[in-house]
Design a protein around this nucleic acid. Structure first.
Lengths: 264, 264
DNA sequence: CGTACCATTGATTACTATCAACGCGCGTGG
DNA sequence: CCACGCGCGTTGATAGTAATCAATGGTACG
């Protein structure tokens, strides 16, 4: 649930980005802010691992296509769509969810800038869930056949894909335990905080782009319960929250309350 | 949660096995029953995909090591062990579980013959759980560096690894929903049934190699609740169960009760 | 300015955990 | 050989956590 350690330091990523974008033909990329976006990208460490000036690096960047911007509530992909690409969130937030046979939505996850979605579609060869933007959002699209082919030539890419996939196995199972509503909410907030921090964004003060209902659905609680827990957390000084603006006042204690969930 | 479709038919696997075992040097393999074991192996379809007589096929089989037999209650690997290999169950049953900070066990899964364990260790580079045998069990060990190297040369192997990893993302999340005790138990039994059937074993009549407490722990229920549900299922003619011998009397209805959990 | 959605709070219900006791089978040791 | 202890499974009684039902206030948007 914590983030990829190798992502945290970005010694000299901008130069890499600059070089790569020297030939941005395929996608509609090339605007001035790309370097900033890529800095948070889940593939950033692959680029670093590869080194400068290699043809493979260009290959990786050439198979990226920028998609979006999406407005809030749009679909990046839909449940049942044939699987051809994986996506990385460049900016914004994406919610993945499926709809059960009774028509009820099941939120599977929230995905922040730099995170990859669609890996769970490889096996069924169709997307097993919807990906819906929660705010204005931009994504990168990676053709999976192309990146697979690249992986056979570049062990670093293959290794990175294996690691991302393996990591998701762990995160997918982390909600499975039977935990109290307090523990679930605390773990949720602490996890979001860490993921923001891992991408260089403020981890103790951020905006919740999802509704209470989405949080509740994700945590398998009633939205009323989420509301009550947040109110209680605020009343004991753990957090400040007005609307969707959140301030963590005691992250260690929050982590502690949610520790069962945070693969402790 | 259902099994790999491409595993179900085994047109002509035995010949492949025979050829492969023509040079069983590395591992202590080579006994007469290997063909039977491999027939249920998770890598069987890879072998099929590769075709006959290829050097890569030999490479795949050469990097297999047979480990065990383990007696009931032994460890295949332990939480925290450095990750070097993935394992496939050849015969028997393996339980994976972790221990939380309070010392309580958390059962993550049960693994039947032909299923692979250890994929969730790639990312942390250590095993994030224990793997404990529930009965007399034999496994195959695949060096991960070696199989990774092989994957760069053989797209079919890479593809298979990607697919297995992706599949586990789905299964790992399937317990996350908030489902009734009835639904959980029904889904558990139906899932076991299908997995046995997928390997050519009788799917409506089998032995539960795990205790009620293990089942309950896995399903995040109390063992008393599992007991009550099983008793009720028997009383309404859904199943027969004495001790750990189980007969499914109405698999469709069982699936129906557990449908929420069984993805779709 | 009204409508609709979101969030909060209160009252009640229900499911399952927990506590407790008992039966059973099995291995051990007297 | 039998008594005993132990682990496992079942069944009963009680309690607690969170869901559900219900109502209200606030905010955004048309």
């Amino acid at each position: 649930m914590t983030d990829e350690p190798s992502n945290k330091p970005f010694p000299t990523p901008l130069k890499i980005r600059g070089r790569a974008h020297a030939r941005p033909r395929h996608p509609p990329a090339g605007d001035g802010r790309d370097a900033d976006f890529c800095q948070t990208c889940a593939f950033a460490d692959v680029c670093l691992a590869v080194g400068y000036g290699m043809t493979e690096l260009n290959a990786l960047h050439c198979l990226v296509e920028h998609v979006g911007p999406f407005r809030s509530g749009e679909y990046v992909f839909r449940d049942g769509d044939p699987f051809r690409s994986i996506f990385a969130v460049r900016a914004g937030t994406v919610k993945t969810s499926s709809v059960d046979h009774t028509g009820r939505e099941q939120v599977l996850g929230f995905h922040l800038p730099g995170e990859v979605i669609g890996l769970n579609a490889i096996y069924p060869d169709r997307f097993p869930c919807n990906a819906i933007t929660l705010e204005k959002t931009q994504c990168c699209r990676f053709s999976f056949p192309k990146i697979s082919a690249l992986a056979t030539q570049m062990p670093a890419v293959q290794r990175h894909l294996f690691r991302m996939l393996s990591k998701e196995i762990g995160t997918a199972g982390s909600l499975a335990g039977d935990h109290s509503a307090d523990a679930r909410v605390a773990a949720f907030l602490a996890d979001l905080s860490e993921r923001y921090a891992a991408r260089g964004l403020p981890g103790s003060r951020f905006h919740l782009s999802m509704s209470r209902a989405d949080i509740a659905n994700y945590l398998r609680l009633a939205s009323e319960t989420v509301s009550r827990v947040l109110t209680r957390f605020r009343s004991i000084g753990l957090i400040d929250i007005v609307e969707r603006e959140l301030v963590l006042r005691d992250p260690p204690r929050l982590r502690d309350i949610g520790q069962d969930l945070l693969r402790g």
